[in-house]
Structure formats: structure tokens, C-alpha cells
Design a protein around this nucleic acid. Structure first.
Length: 437
DNA sequence: AAACACGACAACCGCCAGGCA
DNA sequence: GTGCCTGGCGGTTGTCGTGTT
């Protein structure tokens, strides 16, 4: 990014007030109990500090970052920076057409569930998808084009009808093409590995680099130097972060309140729906043909896809505010007592869930499932890659040249960076275990 | 060349939920 | 049971680059 301004005089966010600022780099920022916290664009030096910290200590406990490193950033800021920019598994290339198509499809199903959408798009962050979508919406809106391409609506409605067969949905679902089976809780077994491996991949030298030193480094690009020349995307399948909590666990459709969630056969759509877990295209590949419902997916302005066919939802909020797909505005419809829907605990769903993924009815189950799977997979994975640590510590250069070559050629920061180790300039001796201020 | 509009993106903010003492 | 802390999520804002007038 070009945003590397060091100046930031803005005030500290309220939610960061609990963080203790140690660094006083003369920059702006509010003053926490122990000093100022910076806001605004991150510098390369700050990135490097954060990367080093996370590499060594792992994700989580973000508020400890600045306490241990002297980084004048609040925990939330650190977390976001890491998640959106520093995670090694992030793609640093523009969103492809395929990805765009998938985003559109996912949005038709999920609405503004960016985090969940990100989970379906390896290497993409919720923020990235959100930005992409918002931009796209604006563009479409300005052009008077439908947000959802006709084929998406058609496919979605087809998929929805197909789901009828599975869930014995009432005929009303013809108006809810986005009600299609999808495993929104998919937690690939490997996803929890990321950090452990990263810990092995970042150089010990960096880990021991004093924050005070790093902070003095100009933003000209320390980070590219301290990070591997390429990312192990293939080794580290990016996905939703481990116990990523899903908001409104009672229903993955935000607008569907608990009561509704209880009656809607989301089981076919949620955690346990393995039928879609690995075959997302299934959703749109149904042989069903329902042109009518597709045509209903657009309002007269071509603005908001009325996927649910409810005209009332197509009007108001959409243009001025990023809205959920109209599906999610149809609470009343689904919530109607006249629509006896199967329970989430139906045997069918349970059967599905028993195979591959967590049960739709419980986020906890999803997490537990994920943890279990990861635990197993991580062990073997780490065993396979364990020597990477030693390699790095001993000879980073060799490691990168030999191990990273086969990986995604795009570096985390979108450039081909020279190895930090090739330059061998990092200081050592100070660990982030100890506050260095 | 300057002004403006727009896109793209990073970062912040407020809210909320889970964990824990 | 309650309150605090931490972290996640979605919405919003701010900034910069680029194209157009």
C-alpha cells in the first residue's frame, strides 16, 4: 500500500484505550495509560514488528503486542493489520474473475457476511471482499445494472429448488433462491495450521529484533526483507481463522432471528452440509430451470436483486446503505407460523454432519470439529515441516530458495522481496518476550 | 495544469459474544 | 450471576491514485 504515512495525530479509539502505549515516536495518537497510541497507516517497521511478534507468540492476545514490543498500536489495530495484510496466506493479487463470480454467488446466499465469504475464498480477507463488493455495488448502481447477474439468480433459484428436494421446503422457497445448501462453517482441517507453521518460517533473527530498532527503520521496506520471498499458499491453505466466531450463531442469516432460525431447515445450509462443502458449484449447477424466479430477482431499477421475490424488500434501504440480500429481509415470511419447517436436528442433517463438518445447529460444534480436525492434521503437518524451523534458524537463505520456490510466487506484500537473511542485517538479542522499553 | 469525480483500499468505530475471574 | 477483558464482525470513513473534463 501506498499509505505509509508516519504522521498521525488523530485520537486513540475508545476501544483501544485499554492498551498501554509504550512507544513515543513523536507521532500523534492518543495517550493511553503509558503513552500514545498511533493511528492511521502502518509503516513497514510496524509491520515487521507485528509479524515478528505473531510469529513468535502466535495470534491472539493482541493487546499484549504493544506491551511486549513497544508497538504503539492497540490490540485491535494489530489484529486487523495482521488479518488483513500480514498473514502469509493472503493473496496479494487482484481479485480474479472466478473469485468475483464466487463472491457474487456467495453474497446472493449469505448477504453481507464478509467473514464467511472470506472463508470460502482462500487468501482473501473479509475486508477485501467487503471493499470489493462495495465498490462493485457502487459501480453497478451507478450504471443501473443489476447487482446479481441474471445467471446467478437463475442458478441460485435452481439450486434452491434443488434444495427443496432435500429439505422438503415449502413452495415459498421458490422466492428465496439464496436458500441453498452451503457449508458456511466449512473449516478445512488445515486451516489452524497456519500460524504454527509461520512460526517456523519467520527467522529467529527477526523474532529477536528489538522493536526499538525496527521502529527506526524507514518505511522503505523492511518488511519485504524480513519476510519470505514468496508465500506458502499451497502449504498453508488460507481460510477462515480458526475459532472464528460467527455472529448471530443462532442463525447465519443475520436478519433471521432466533425464532426463525429454529424453524428453517438451515441444516442443509450450514455447518453440516457436506454436500456443498467441496462442491460449491453445485449450488449453481442444478439442472432445474426456473426462469420465472430468475426474472423475479430484479427490481425494476435493476438495483437490488429481489432474490426472494418480495417486492417490499427491493426498495428502501438498499441504495443508501449496503444491504443484505433481500432474502435476509424476509424474516416475516420465513417466520410465519404457517410454515412448518423441519428441525435442524433432523436425522438427515445429523447424518450429513457426522461425515464431514460441524452440525448446523451449533457453532460450538463447528469449532470443536475444527479444533479436532486441526489437531490431527496439524500434528502430521507440522511433523512434516518441522525441520523448517531449524532450516530457517540455520540457513534461511537455503530454506527460502528450496522450500518456498514451489509456493505461490506472490509475496505477501506483492513484491518479490530479497531475503532479509541474504542481507543479514537484522539485529538480535532482544526477544519480544521481554519489554524492551 | 487545475479541478473534480471516482475507484480502490486501509483503517477505524461501534457493537456484540465468549471466556473468565 | 455479574462484570470485565478480549477478540470478531460489519459498517463507515479517510486517504491516495488515476482518469476525465
Amino acid at each position: 500500500m501506498s499509505m505509509t504515512s508516519e504522521s498521525d495525530e488523530s485520537t486513540m479509539p475508545k476501544n483501544c484505550i485499554d492498551s498501554l502505549a509504550v512507544e513515543d515516536d513523536g507521532g500523534g495518537g492518543d495517550v493511553g495509560p503509558n503513552g500514545p497510541l498511533k493511528k492511521g497507516p502502518w509503516t513497514s517497521a510496524e509491520d515487521a514488528i507485528l509479524v515478528a511478534y505473531v510469529t513468535k507468540h502466535g495470534e491472539g492476545n493482541w493487546n499484549a503486542v504493544h506491551k511486549r514490543t513497544g508497538l504503539a498500536r492497540c490490540g485491535k489495530s494489530c489484529r486487523l493489520r495482521w488479518a488483513n495484510h500480514l498473514r502469509p496466506d493472503l493473496k496479494k493479487v487482484p481479485i480474479s474473475q472466478e473469485e468475483e463470480d464466487l463472491i457474487v454467488k456467495l453474497h446472493a446466499k449469505m448477504g453481507n457476511k464478509w467473514a464467511r465469504m472470506a472463508a470460502e475464498l482462500p487468501g482473501r480477507t473479509d475486508n477485501e471482499i467487503k471493499n470489493f463488493w462495495n465498490t462493485r455495488i457502487k459501480r453497478k448502481e451507478r450504471a443501473g445494472l443489476p447487482i446479481y447477474p441474471p445467471e446467478i439468480c437463475t442458478e441460485a433459484s435452481n439450486g434452491n429448488q434443488q434444495s427443496d428436494n432435500l429439505s422438503a421446503f415449502p413452495s415459498a422457497d421458490a422466492h428465496y433462491p439464496d436458500f441453498i445448501p452451503v457449508n458456511n462453517f466449512e473449516i478445512p482441517p488445515i486451516e489452524f495450521k497456519n500460524f504454527e507453521l509461520h512460526q517456523k518460517l519467520y527467522p529467529q533473527a527477526l523474532l529477536d529484533t528489538p522493536a526499538s530498532c525496527l521502529l527506526d527503520i524507514p518505511s522503505s521496506g523492511l518488511l519485504p526483507q524480513v519476510l519470505p520471498p514468496s508465500y506458502p499458499i499451497k502449504l498453508l491453505p488460507p481460510t477462515v481463522h480458526p475459532p472464528k466466531r460467527l455472529r448471530g450463531s443462532q442463525s447465519s442469516f443475520p436478519s433471521l432471528n432466533a425464532g426463525i432460525a429454529n424453524v428453517i431447515p438451515f441444516g442443509s445450509q450450514y455447518p453440516d452440509d457436506v454436500s456443498v462443502q467441496n462442491t460449491q458449484s453445485l449450488i449453481y449447477s442444478s439442472s432445474y430451470d426456473n426462469p420465472n424466479s430468475a426474472s423475479n430477482s430484479y427490481d425494476h431499477m435493476g438495483r437490488h436483486a429481489v432474490l426472494n421475490g418480495n417486492p417490499s424488500s427491493s426498495e428502501p434501504a438498499w441504495p443508501t446503505k449496503m444491504e443484505l440480500p433481500s432474502l435476509q429481509t424476509q424474516v416475516g415470511y420465513w417466520g410465519s407460523p404457517s410454515s412448518p419447517l423441519p428441525s435442524l436436528e433432523s436425522p438427515t442433517q445429523n447424518n450429513l454432519s457426522s461425515n464431514l463438518s460441524p452440525r448446523s445447529s451449533g457453532l460450538l460444534d463447528a469449532v470443536l470439529y475444527g479444533s479436532h480436525t486441526v489437531k490431527n492434521s496439524t500434528n502430521s503437518f507440522l511433523q512434516q515441516n518441522w525441520n523448517a524451523v531449524d532450516i530457517i534458524d540455520a540457513s534461511s537463505q537455503d530454506f527460502y530458495e528450496t522450500k518456498w520456490e514451489a509456493c505461490e510466487p506472490i509475496s505477501p506484500f506483492g513484491r518479490s522481496s530479497s531475503s532479509l537473511f541474504s542481507e543479514g542485517t537484522l539485529m538480535s538479542g532482544i526477544s519480544f518476550d521481554e519489554p524492551n522499553m
